Simulated scan of single mutants.
Amino acid sequence: MSPATRLLVAGCLAMVVAMGIGRFYYTPMLPLMQREYGFDAAVAGLIASANFGGYLVGSIAASMLAPGVTRVWVFRLALIGSVATTAAMGLTDSTPMWIALRTLSGIASALAMIAGAGMVAEALAKIEEPGRIGWYFGGVGLGILVSGMLAQFAGGLSAAQMWLLAGGIGVLLLPFIFRELIERELEPRPHRASAGRRRPRPLRLWPLFVNYTCEGLGYSVFATFIVAIVKARPQTEAIGDWVWVVVGLAGLPSTVLWTALAERFGFAVSLILAYVVQIAGVLLPAASGSGLAALAAAVMFGGTFLSITALTLPLGRHGAGGRGFAVLTAGFGAGQMLGPVIAGYMVTLGYGFRAALYGSAAVLAFGLAVLIYGVVTRTEAPGAVAT
């Protein structure tokens, strides 16, 4: 493999560990944990929000990182922390301990994701291949796929054993990641002429910040509760774990496909389209209780939520003195911290998940409107091609 390919593979596997498993494994584990430990939707939302709150703290801390040796070591320690907190979930049945562990896990996920994304994006930008960052974020989809398959095929294990198994998988992946994902200079590859390829042109930070904050709040309800929602319906209970597998399958190639679409039709236009598809996906399980609707929603959600991040990164990373992505991720973290808590209490108060899904779709629609405003009012540079 070429150095660039090894860097991307390591980045992909880092996202499997820190995000696909460390951050999103809680979703397929939630029904099993509720069955074994007996906690309600409000507690489930609180545990999820603790992780998202930690993600916010980690995002703020990551905004202070500069390129160099420190960033590499923060990245490595964050991955170790993600693996350790994942495994430790299987060593306790205490709700306060779960909250503490998920908070630390969120901090580790954000630090690993942002530090890793910075190293990969900067290396790719220097060889004029920024679109390949999609392979990095595709690791989240691969991790979600792995977590869903674990939940599907390790059904004889207890919740504690499942958490320990996931932590063990992370340990096995760390040596390769640590060896290959470092600050490095890549050799440019020969390029074929690509006169029609669009390049990302930054948007103003404030509309992108509002938009991405709404994405955090709106997406988090689906991302946290979709498996529990599907399993709670008698007609779809059997496909609950498969829904999460489908989310991962759809997410795996999505960032590469959406980036290719963006390079052809424009990054901002593609980002708007991704939001339209995601909103439809969030509305589907609210509007219909059928298994087909649940699977279609999984495809639409899985096929967009990673791509929205991959398309937002190049549009916003130059803001705030070059720390735009960390600032945007902090807004995203604040939004997603609220989503599961609000949804959990809505269910506890009797409104149900359907109302929560409608509410999250409305938040996403508002964020989309702000994004469109930011695109429409963007000042065009002379001779620029709209993206």
Rank of each mutant, 00 (worst) to 15 (best):
5 T>N: 07
5 T>K: 10
8 L>T: 08
16 V>E: 10
20 G>W: 06
24 F>Q: 01
25 Y>H: 09
28 P>H: 01
40 D>K: 10
50 A>T: 06
51 N>C: 12
58 G>M: 10
61 A>W: 11
62 A>W: 13
101 L>N: 02
104 L>H: 11
106 G>Q: 03
113 M>D: 03
117 A>N: 06
122 E>Q: 11
132 R>W: 01
139 G>Q: 14
141 G>H: 02
145 L>A: 11
150 L>D: 03
153 F>W: 14
161 Q>S: 05
163 W>V: 00
163 W>D: 05
175 P>C: 05
184 R>A: 15
188 P>F: 03
191 H>F: 07
200 P>M: 12
205 L>M: 15
207 P>I: 05
209 F>I: 14
220 S>Q: 06
222 F>K: 13
230 V>A: 13
232 A>D: 14
242 W>S: 05
250 A>R: 02
265 F>K: 09
277 V>K: 09
289 G>Y: 05
293 A>K: 02
294 A>I: 00
300 M>A: 09
301 F>G: 00
302 G>F: 10
305 F>H: 02
307 S>N: 07
320 A>H: 12
320 A>I: 12
330 A>V: 02
333 G>H: 03
334 A>R: 13
335 G>W: 01
337 M>C: 11
339 G>V: 04
339 G>C: 09
339 G>E: 04
343 A>V: 09
346 M>S: 14
349 L>R: 05
350 G>I: 12
352 G>D: 03
356 A>E: 08
359 G>T: 09
359 G>L: 13
362 A>D: 03
365 A>Y: 14
385 V>C: 08
